[in-house]
Write a protein that binds this DNA or RNA. Structure first.
Length: 199
DNA sequence: CGCCGGATTTAA
DNA sequence: TAAATCCGGCGA
């Protein structure tokens, strides 16, 4: 049976979003018997990020991004897929880290059922929509404190051996500078990452 | 108040 | 390669 590590304290998230993003690699998303190891993330926000939801200022949808770090920011994309973000940065910075891919650790039967798959394949958790579906997330999880036990939790895992960086995915509306910014991070040499591959 | 388009996935 | 499918944000 899987033994989860300790909860990650709230202070972990009160740092620059890129630092939090890199340090989230290898950590565990735990909900009941399900556990996922984070393998790929993207950092959003900070001063003047034209790719971030915070780019138009504070709105009803993105208000959670201005709150304290360590809370979940959920939003619906293309009317179909929920995206899981972890709020990061100092209070008022409005930044977050998008969870893009994970490695299955525990609760495989539940994961397969939620993803409507019969076998574990590399694409089981490769993509933000797939991660959220595997965790059965929706808008009701918006604002949830991930450093508190009970529902979805972030716990200590094993850091990656190496980290690779690249440009973020699906932000063609952003400035060319922000499109090319290396704010996408993945565990090196992992098969559990989304496309386009970073290495 | 109506329209536009998206931090995507899936199947054809 | 396109459809699925919903709502936030913006302009009228």
């Amino acid at each position: 049976m899987f033994r989860p590590g300790p909860l990650i304290p709230g202070a972990f998230y009160a740092r620059d979003a890129d630092l939090v993003a890199r340090d989230l690699l290898g950590q565990l998303l735990v909900d009941g018997a399900v556990a996922l190891r984070i393998t790929e993330v993207e950092a959003y926000g900070g001063p003047e990020d034209s790719a971030s939801h915070a780019r138009m200022g504070q709105t009803p949808r993105n208000q959670i991004m201005w709150g304290p770090g360590g809370h979940a920011y959920l939003y619906l994309c293309y009317g179909i897929h929920w995206m899981l973000n972890v709020v990061a940065g100092p209070l008022g910075q409005s930044s977050a880290v998008l969870i893009r891919a994970c490695e299955p650790i525990a609760g495989l039967d539940t994961l397969l059922a939620r993803r409507r798959k019969s076998r574990v394949a590399p694409d089981l958790l490769a993509g933000p929509g797939r991660v959220a579906q595997a965790l059965a997330l929706n808008g009701e999880f918006n604002g949830l404190a991930l450093f508190r036990p009970g529902q979805l939790e972030l716990r200590r895992g094993t850091p990656p051996d190496s980290i690779v960086a690249g440009p973020r995915v699906g932000i063609g509306y952003a400035t060319t500078e922000d499109q090319s910014a290396l704010r996408r991070f993945a565990t090196g040499a992992s098969r559990w990452v989304s496309r386009p591959k970073l290495c």
